[in-house]
Nucleic acid binder design. Structure first.
Length: 422
RNA sequence: GGAGAGUUGGCAGAGUGGUAAUGCACCGGACUCGAAAUCCGGCGAACGCUGUAAUGGCGCGCGCAGGUUCAAAUCCUGUACUCUCCUCCA
């Protein structure tokens, strides 16, 4: 959520910056106009309320003296009606302004590339060299089905398309990966969390999924509960409506959770394999920081995600998303993309973002600065990593010509010492 | 799922129709060589509107949302959460 005061005072800058994210300037103008009207009404209604308070005191005094107050009471009936009318109009406007403002994306950091879509993203660095194959590398779903460790058909039968069964060494490999990731993050100072996998609407609002992106999630019918699309939601809402003691900052959380996404609007894209599912495991990292530290913490978090791939021996690159490609809540995002040999391209496996105060404002997460003043924290989130996509990358990058898959060195302790899945 | 109790400032805790006591904590001052104790004063929180050269003014505010009333912490309705008992259960 952007600060309405900030919008009011920087109309042109907001128009320009959000214009880079595809927001029409008329929307900003409408918000500002409604806000102007809203404040006019506040002045009027508060003047009347002051009058009501004063006269009510006088009425109380008269009654105590056993004097007649009928005239004043009659007068206040009219004032009360007027207040009610103003308040109703005010509530309507409040709702409109808040609703419109809550649908505005975050202001992008000024250093990130401006552009309409992913073509304007900028590569920061490449890490590792894609292996050269002396045979045609197979797609991970082929490898997985052949080894009988991934079963998409039965997933579709029992749940639907974009669901699957992991089986045998496939299930074990998934478990090895996320245990490895959690152990690494714990060593880097993240506190491990097992969060709720469903959350209420307030939480979805707090991190920015609601109200705009309800179509992207699964909700429990007749309940105020949504299956989490990412552990970012419960991890960031942990401190919702709280003041974090300053000495606790920065806070580092990590959690493994399933992520549930309806994938509305992605029909026909990535229909095979582990890339785009309705349910997938993800290890998430979340940080709460002081404003002055957040960008350094974003770099650290990005490196924490990258190091997982380095230890797994997976080639990847890091890109900075352009204004047009960034997620709703982010001020800056680094994506990490892993090399998938069968697709002959890098695919997103992690996304690390600094939302600055955008989520903190929505979720009311604050701390007290040195002057004792309440300030919004900065919140960051990043995948470390998407487990299913990591498993896909392991299968493809570590496949052998005979269809077997070599187990990356660092995972063998998690796989009972197994070195090849065949 | 059923029954009951509760929710007030950082904490404790009064207040059943007239606009939020009090204590602790906190801040300033006095006393003291200094501190403690004591005394005096202040502050109670966020948020919103407004505004001065500036201290400010006002609204709001008693879990949340409505309602009744000239006036609501107080009465009514709904709802969330916590605790206790019953029921159920891994």
């Amino acid at each position: 959520m952007l600060d309405i005061k900030m919008i009011r005072q920087n109309v042109d800058e907001v128009k320009e910056q959000l214009g880079n994210r595809g927001v029409k300037p008329e929307i900003i103008e409408e918000i500002v106009a409604k806000d102007r009207k809203r404040r006019d009404i506040i002045v009027q209604t508060e003047t009347l309320k002051k009058q009501r308070n004063d006269v009510s005191q006088a009425i109380a005094q008269l009654k105590r003296n056993k004097e007649n107050a009928d005239a004043q009471i009659e007068e206040m009936k009219k004032v009360g009606d007027a207040i009610k009318a103003f308040d109703e109009e005010l509530n309507g406007l409040d709702e409109e302004v808040t609703d419109m403002a809550s649908r505005l994306p975050n202001m992008p950091n000024k250093t990130i590339p401006v552009g309409p879509d992913e073509d304007s993203n900028v590569e920061l660095r490449k890490v590792g060299t894609p292996r050269t194959f002396d045979f045609e590398p197979k797609a991970h779903w082929e490898i997985g089905e052949k080894l009988d460790i991934l079963d998409f058909e039965r997933g579709a039968k029992v749940a639907g398309s974009r669901f699957l069964y992991y089986k045998g060494w496939g299930a074990r490999l998934e478990r090895a990966l996320y245990n490895f990731m959690l152990d690494e993050h714990a060593a880097d100072g993240y506190t491990e969390i097992i969060p709720p996998y469903v959350v209420n609407d307030e939480s979805m609002y707090g991190t920015g999924q609601f109200p705009k992106f309800k179509a992207d999630v699964f909700q429990i019918e007749n309940e105020n509960l949504t299956l989490i699309p990412t552990a970012e939601v419960p991890l960031t809402n942990y401190y919702r409506d709280e003041v974090i003691p300053e000495e606790k900052l920065p806070v580092y959380f990590t959690a493994l959770s399933p992520s549930f996404r309806s994938e509305a609007g992605s029909a026909g894209r990535d229909t095979r394999g582990l890339i785009r599912l309705h349910q997938f495991n993800k290890v998430e990292m979340v940080k709460y920081t002081k404003p002055e530290d957040s960008y350094a913490e974003l770099e650290k978090m990005t490196n924490d995600a990258g190091r997982i791939m380095e230890k797994l021996g997976l080639p990847y690159h890091v890109i900075t998303l352009s204004t047009g490609d960034m997620g709703f809540s982010a001020a800056m995002t680094h994506d990490l993309e892993v090399w998938l040999p069968a697709q002959d391209m890098y695919r997103e496996i992690s996304s690390c973002s600094n939302t600055e105060t955008f989520q903190a404002r929505r979720a009311h997460i604050q701390y007290r600065d040195d002057n004792g003043k309440l300030q919004f924290v900065h919140t960051l989130n990043g995948s470390g990593l998407a487990v299913g996509r990591t498993l896909a990358a392991v299968l493809e990058n570590y496949q052998n010509e005979d269809g077997s898959v070599t187990v990356p060195e660092v995972l063998r302790p998690y796989m009972g010492g197994l070195d090849v899945i065949k």
